[in-house]
Design a protein around this nucleic acid. Structure first.
Length: 763
DNA sequence: CTGTGGTGTCATTTA
DNA sequence: GTTAAATGACACCAC
């Protein structure tokens, strides 16, 4: 049923697109608000231009909340894989193609036949060739996507939820896991952004709907092309029918008569169109293409900022974890928690508090993913080398283990965007994305791509294992592995998220300056999902939310951290966002923080505390079923507690699902809007070409007519009288001979004067 | 005060 | 049968 419903809806939209192509006005715009409005809301007033102007890239899309961390690992792996395997969903490709039409033509239509060269066939070829050229241009499609992507992330009201929370219901838990996932999201936004949906199972992120719609849209697009070509062909055919000789014959005659090649052909639809087209759409993509690195770079700055953020936040987190470990012996005993606590203890043992910079990545490691423990260990040891250790070394391993090092990518890889852009779109436009076996190659590819020294530490088998782990354990653990013992784990995510968000913002802003596209959204979205599924919006919120006094009531260092992250403020570009940011900030800075902090706790969190639930809501929500059940069984919980826990889990999951769902909807809408716009542009261009071709044909007919007159003016019958073109027609034999035939049936053929008309010679 | 958009939650369906 | 995910619908809140 759902499928039918979905297809019906999509079908309607496709029909609309088709109709618009065919010429029937379908005002989709009336149904689809401007993309930026759809995404950012009318208040945001975030037009593309505006977006470009917001170089700080602060506007993070509030809706791109991706909640499922389950796919984090896979997506990241997919992203890694995408580094070498260029892959672009046909839908995106088509979107881009439409946008890139002009350039595509320029680039891809070099072999356009001369107008007179092939008659109808030539024209048809032209039309077809356009498609081909467009397709060829797909190689550079990546740039477009990358340039447009950030828009989604740049959403304004990240803080809206915060505001709301600050009012009455204290949704600490929501904040916790939102921010946790957000952290992941942000962390991986850099890399995940370039990643296309990997596995078919992840369709929920990309949205099968989206893909299918786009695929179908692409079909429509192709159909439109074909229709146009056919149309032109038909027109030529009709012209042929109108004239007494075939078009080929006319052409041949003309060729023989005049040196056409030397003439300046006014009707060179291709040339004209191309020329116009080339200047027509100077999309930012071109910028990207020209200087892919220029727009996204400054890894050093990002790194620095991130590093500062991490340093600022890591410490509190660790402390918190310490406390948690101390407090929750029961949890420690839980096998479920073991990995996490291993991490913590390891870190505590190995790293002095100041050197726990690497910890931010720990949160990403699933507490339920035992395999990650060793990797983390390696990571920690590396990072323990000192505060100024090499980022590459520090972050590399985490990258290996996927989502662990969200921040890393920016800094480590430098700017992954360009390379990814270049590579991203080479892969098959075929929609059925390559699923299945991803891991090993992807990881290895990643290593080669990043050129990090990780290879030594990397083990393909490990990767495979990791993949399995990630698959099974899912991003759930990734998201919250750090939080099993306590909400403090969320703080870790906060820190990383905030820091990463800052870096992200820079990247986004740069990208934003380049362009805006749904493709990017999609990528971002995937990243979100890949990272743990939380949106930039949330990430933004994180910046403020981890300042919540409630959390830091007993954690002075956390308070400090909280007050430290003012770099997020400038992000408040939209009024709404600005307000949202202001309120929490002012509140947090007030002395009655404690009172308010209580209000900031989530309802469920509050209940959980009231009920003395021994584990965090994050854990409750994100733990895999088995582990969740195990957790419940390991604690003696009352029925009320169990019910509450289940409710918390259900609500939490549903909340994430809802956010996912909404984001998907927006993505679909946005993609459709893009598609419609692109198709309209394409249609306009095709119509223009058609007009050009018609004009060309008209001219050719005129010249042919003149040529006829010219020829007949030189022909004489036996009596030396001039022959009238109205009475005779020229016919071409296969041997190249030109014969005269009478036009009226009565006198037909008798007068077939074998005037061998070597006009060329004559002339 | 109303409309709009964002978000959380519930109920239901689907895989 | 259970679970997770998806989604429509509703309510609430902020603007």
């Amino acid at each position: 049923m759902m499928c039918l419903k979905k297809y019906f809806t999509e079908g309607l939209i496709q029909v609309a697109i088709l109709l618009s192509l065919v010429g029937i006005r379908v005002d989709v715009g009336s149904y689809l608000p401007p993309s930026h409005e759809m995404i950012l809301g009318p208040t945001s007033a975030l037009t593309q231009t505006q977006f470009h102007n917001q170089l700080d890239g602060q506007d993070l899309h509030p809706k791109s909340v991706d909640l499922d961390g389950f796919f984090t690992a896979r997506r990241l792996l997919g992203w890694v894989r995408s580094l070498d395997r260029l892959r672009v969903p046909s839908s995106e490709l088509e979107t881009w193609l439409v946008r890139r039409e002009p350039d595509a033509l320029v680039v891809g239509a070099p072999g356009q036949p001369a107008p007179l060269e092939g008659g109808a066939g030539g024209l048809e070829v032209h039309a077809v060739d356009q498609v081909g050229s467009v397709m060829r241009s797909s190689v550079v499609a990546g740039s477009l996507e990358s340039e447009y992507g950030p828009i989604r992330e740049d959403s304004p009201n990240t803080v809206a939820p915060l505001l709301r929370r600050s009012h009455e219901e204290e949704d600490k838990d929501e904040d916790l896991y939102e921010e946790d996932t957000d952290t992941l999201w942000q962390d991986h936004s850099d890399r995940g952004r370039h990643q296309w949906p990997e596995e078919g199972e992840e369709e929920e992120l990309v949205g099968d709907t989206w893909r299918e719609i786009w695929r179908d849209g692409g079909r429509s697009y192709d159909r439109a092309n074909r229709e146009l070509a056919q149309d032109l062909s038909d027109q030529f055919a009709s012209l042929e029918a109108q004239s007494s000789m075939s078009f080929q014959e006319c052409l041949r005659l003309l060729e023989d008569t005049f040196p056409f090649g030397e003439e300046t052909e006014p009707s060179d639809p291709v040339g004209i169109d191309l020329g116009e087209a080339s200047g027509e759409d100077p999309t930012p993509v071109q910028e990207l293409l020209l200087s892919p690195l220029s727009s996204h770079e400054d890894p050093s700055l990002d790194l620095e900022q991130q590093w500062h953020d991490i340093l600022a936040i890591m410490e509190p987190e660790d402390m918190d974890l310490d406390r948690d470990v101390m407090q929750s012996g029961s949890i420690q005993s839980s096998s479920l928690m073991d990995p996490v606590h291993q991490d913590v203890s390891l870190q505590q043992a190995i790293l002095p508090r100041s050197s726990q910079d690497s910890y931010p990545f720990n949160p990403s490691f699933g507490g339920s993913v035992p395999l990650e423990a060793p990797l983390q260990l390696a990571l920690l040891s590396q990072s323990s080398s000192g505060p100024d250790f090499d980022f590459n070394l520090t972050f590399g391993p985490s990258d290996l283990t996927d989502s662990a090092l969200p921040l890393a990518l920016n800094g480590t890889v430098g700017n992954p965007m360009p390379s990814i852009q270049s590579s991203l779109f080479l892969e098959e436009p075929v929609l059925p994305s390559p699923l299945g076996s991803l891991l090993d190659d992807a990881l290895l590819d990643e290593l080669s791509f990043q050129g990090l020294a990780l290879e030594e530490s990397f083990n393909p088998t490990q990767a495979s294992q990791l993949e399995e782990e990630l698959d099974s354990d899912s991003g759930l653990s990734l998201n919250f592995s750090h939080s099993p013992a306590s909400p403090s784990g969320s703080e870790a995510s906060y820190s990383s998220s905030s820091s990463s968000s800052s870096s992200d913002s820079s990247v986004f802003s740069e990208e934003g300056a380049v362009g805006y596209s749904s493709d990017m959204e999609v990528i971002v979205e995937r990243e979100e999902g890949a990272v743990g599924g939380y949106s930039p919006e949330v990430s933004k919120m994180c910046s403020t939310s981890y300042q919540k006094p409630g959390r830091f009531n007993n954690l002075p260092w956390l308070e400090q951290v909280g007050h430290d992250h003012t770099y997020n403020q400038p992000r408040a570009t939209s009024p709404r966002q600005g307000n949202s940011l202001k309120l929490p900030k002012s509140r947090y800075s007030k002395p009655y923080e404690h009172d308010i902090s209580d209000k900031l706790w989530g309802r469920d969190e509050r209940r959980a505390r009231t009920m003395k639930i021994p584990f965090s809501n994050d854990l409750i929500v994100n733990l895999p079923v088995e582990e969740f059940n195990e957790l419940l069984t390991k604690h003696r919980l009352s029925e009320a507690q169990l019910n509450l826990i289940r409710d918390i889990r259900r609500r939490g999951k549903n909340k994430m699902a809802a956010q996912n769902c909404r984001r998907r909807k927006l993505d679909v809408l946005f993609g459709l809007e893009e598609g419609v716009e692109g198709l309209c542009r394409h249609k306009a261009r095709l119509l223009k070409e058609k007009a050009e071709n018609l004009r060309s044909v008209r001219e050719m007919k005129q010249r042919l007519s003149g040529l006829y007159q010219e020829v007949f003016s030189r022909l004489r019958d036996e009596q030396g009288r001039p022959l009238l073109a109205t009475d005779y027609s020229l016919q071409f034999g296969n041997d190249g001979q030109v014969l005269l035939a009478t036009r009226n049936g009565s006198a037909s053929e008798q007068n077939c004067k074998p005037h061998k008309k070597q006009k060329d010679g004559k002339k």
